[in-house]
C-alpha cells in the first residue's frame, strides 16, 4: 500500500481481493434461535452461518426441528427468540420488510406445493409478475429460461397434475430460482418422490451447487451430501450436535451419536448416488 509507487495494478488487485471477500460473505446467519409449538420446544437455541456459495446439508432424526429451522429462516414460521439475517438484512428485526427479505430466499418443499391452477410456465412466472411486477411478456420469457435450466421447457404448458413427482419438484425449483434468491432452502426435496424420480431432482440440485448457488438442504440423501455438501450439520433434539465437512463427519465424527446416526442413515439412503 505504498503511496510512493502507485502502479496501476494495485487497485485491480484490491478490487479482486474485495471480490474474493464478497464471495465468502455471510448469506444466512442464525443466532440463538428458539421455537416452541405449545409445550414442545422444537428449537432450543440454534446458531448457524452459511457463506456465499456454500452447500450445507442438515441431517437428523425426524421431529428434530430441521424443517422448522428452515422455515424460521424465511420467517414462514415465526421464532420465539433469536435473530435471523438473510444477505445482511435482519428478517426478525421489528419493522423489517419481511416480504422483501423473504424474496431473497427460495424455498423448495417436500410436497412440491405447485400452484394447481397454473401451468408449469405460469407457476414460474407468477412470482415475477406479482412480486417483482415484471410485465407479462418479460416474465414469461424469464420463466421459460428457468424451465430450461431444470430441463423442462417442453412441459411449459402442462398443469401440475400432468407432471410426475420429479418434474413437479423441478418446476418448483425453477419457480424459486426465478426470484433470483441469494439462498435456496430445500426442505426434504426428495422425500415424497418415488425412488426412480429422486435422481433427476438431485441432478438439478447438483447443477445448482456447481453454479455457485448458496444452498441449505434438509435431506437424508447421504450420497448427495457426501458428494455436494461443503458442510454437514447434524441436529438432534432442537440443537446442533455437530457440524463439519462431509469427509470428517462420515469418517471421524467427534460425537458417538453423530457416528451412530450417520451410519444408520447411510446404510439406508447412501445408495442414491447420482453419477
Amino acid at each position: 500500500m505504498s503511496t510512493l509507487s502507485p502502479e496501476p495494478v494495485k487497485p485491480l488487485l484490491d478490487g479482486s481481493l474485495k471480490n474474493e471477500n464478497e464471495k465468502k460473505r455471510e448469506i444466512v446467519r442464525v443466532s440463538g434461535l428458539k421455537k416452541s409449538f405449545g409445550s414442545l420446544e422444537v428449537l432450543k437455541g440454534i446458531d448457524l452461518s452459511v457463506r456465499e456459495g456454500e452447500v450445507v446439508v442438515i441431517v437428523g432424526p425426524s421431529g428434530t426441528g430441521k424443517s422448522t429451522l428452515l422455515r424460521c429462516i424465511n420467517l414462514l414460521t415465526e421464532p420465539d427468540a433469536g435473530h435471523v439475517w438473510v444477505d445482511g438484512a435482519e428478517i426478525t428485526a421489528r419493522g423489517a420488510d419481511v416480504n422483501k427479505i423473504r424474496a431473497k430466499t427460495g424455498m423448495v418443499f417436500q410436497e412440491f406445493n405447485l400452484f394447481n391452477h397454473l401451468t408449469a410456465l405460469n407457476n414460474v412466472a407468477i412470482g415475477l409478475k406479482v412480486v417483482k411486477k415484471i410485465p407479462e411478456e418479460e416474465a414469461r420469457r424469464r420463466a421459460m429460461e428457468e424451465l430450461e435450466r431444470v430441463g423442462l421447457s417442453s412441459k411449459a404448458s402442462s398443469y401440475p397434475a400432468e407432471l410426475s413427482g420429479g418434474q413437479k419438484q423441478r418446476v418448483a425449483i425453477a419457480r424459486a430460482l426465478a426470484m433470483d434468491p441469494r439462498v435456496m432452502l430445500f426442505d426434504e426435496p426428495t422425500s415424497a418422490l418415488d425412488p426412480e424420480l429422486i435422481g433427476e431432482v438431485l441432478e438439478v440440485m447438483k447443477k445448482l451447487a456447481s453454479e455457485g448457488m448458496t444452498m441449505l438442504v434438509v435431506s437424508h440423501e447421504m450420497g448427495f451430501a457426501k458428494e455436494v455438501a461443503d458442510r454437514i450439520v447434524f441436529m438432534e433434539g432442537g440443537l446442533i450436535v455437530e457440524e463439519g465437512p462431509p469427509d470428517v463427519m462420515f469418517s471421524a465424527p467427534k460425537k458417538a451419536r453423530t457416528k451412530e446416526f450417520l451410519g444408520k442413515i447411510g446404510a439406508i439412503h447412501g445408495g442414491t448416488v447420482v453419477a
Binding site: R102, A103, M107, N113, V130
Partner: peptide, 23 residues
C-alpha cells in the same frame, strides 16, 4: 385449498393479500 399453496406463495415473497388474490 391446501395450506401448502399459501405457504408456497408467501415463500416467493407475496403478501398475504397477493397470495389470496392470485393463488
Amino acid at each position: 385449498v391446501g395450506t401448502g399453496q399459501m405457504t408456497a406463495a408467501r415463500s416467493l415473497g407475496m403478501t398475504r393479500f397477493q397470495a389470496i388474490r392470485h393463488v
